[in-house]
């Protein structure tokens, strides 16, 4: 809690810098307009004008918040202009992809922990594949899948799944190996089968690792979904909102969509954080 004041100060500094940048970046336009109209702008007029442009180079924070407010509360939730609608579409895909990716990562991690051959063949590639900018080719995957007739939610969810898959895989392999030799020996003396060792020792002790990688995974899934919504032709989702904003020069719309994405990311990570706290507390593992 002692961090609240410093965080607030840092946020305040960011907002002040932002206003300054908005004034600086938008001033050229205002001066230009004034020169064409043959009028002079005083400083007060300049400040007022730079903060209220309909298509500013950099919208001031209150304009972005206004756009955000209008997008969330000012439209009916089924409207194409509603950020709730687009956010929901993005969230849906993210959650589907995240669930699939997590499940696949979990299953493969269990396989890797139990089979030496699998561990030695798959793990180096899994780690190496992390260094490849998969996200950058996501839009292309969408286009290719669309040409085969696969459209809508599934291709986007595939990208999200792929991106959340690796953090979960790597984290869970670490987590499933977390029990030390003493604990594994104890299971042996109990004559526990491999399944019992897995369900009673390995899975419970991997939970802290699982939650840590879920947080990374869900953020990655959201980014993946948004980038997957970028290719032309996509009409729903926050990514499509970003793209149409960029086509039509609607900067406020871009920033509002960006903020909506940030809010979604924060909510998703926070939700997993809460689940983590509750689960670990009930299991007596809370730190």
């Amino acid at each position: 809690m002692r961090n609240i004041l410093p965080v607030l100060v840092v946020c305040l500094v960011i907002v002040v810098l932002w206003y300054g940048a908005a004034l600086w970046l938008n001033a050229a336009w205002v001066y230009d307009q004034a020169a064409r109209a043959g009028t002079q702008v005083g400083f007060g007029q300049l400040v007022h004008d730079t903060m209220t442009l309909p298509r500013p180079k950099l919208p001031a924070p209150h304009q972005v918040l206004g756009g955000l407010w209008d997008g969330i509360f000012g439209q009916s939730v089924t409207s194409k202009k509603s950020l709730v609608y687009h956010g929901w579409m993005t969230l849906e895909v993210t959650m589907l992809g995240f669930a699939v990716g997590t499940l696949a990562g979990l299953i493969l991690a269990i396989g890797i922990v139990h089979s030496r051959a699998m561990d030695m063949s798959v793990m180096p590639w899994a780690i190496a594949s992390q260094t490849i900018p998969v996200l950058a080719i996501a839009p292309m995957v969408i286009v290719v899948l669309a040409s085969v007739g696969l459209k809508g939610v599934i291709p986007k969810a595939l990208i999200a799944a792929y991106l959340s898959f690796f953090p979960v895989l790597v984290g869970m392999v670490k987590g499933l190996r977390a029990p030390d030799g003493l604990q594994l020996d104890l299971m042996r003396t109990y004559n526990a089968s491999r399944t019992q060792t897995l369900t009673m020792l390995r899975l419970p002790s991997s939970l802290p690792y699982l939650f840590a990688s879920l947080k990374v995974g869900v953020a990655a899934a959201l980014v993946g979904t948004i980038v997957a919504e970028l290719p032309a032709g996509a009409s729903v989702g926050l990514g499509a909102r970003l793209l149409s904003g960029s086509y039509y020069g609607q900067t406020i719309q871009i920033w509002a969509a960006l903020f909506m994405a940030a809010i979604l990311a924060a909510l998703l990570v926070a939700a997993i954080g809460i689940a983590e706290k509750v689960v670990l507390k009930r299991m007596g593992m809370a730190r």
Binding site: L222, I226, S246, T251, L258
Partner: peptide, 15 residues
Amino acid sequence: AALPIVGVAPILVMW
């Protein structure tokens, strides 16, 4: 660091 920062791309391309 957890935000979908790649979304600023259209803005920066404009600038």
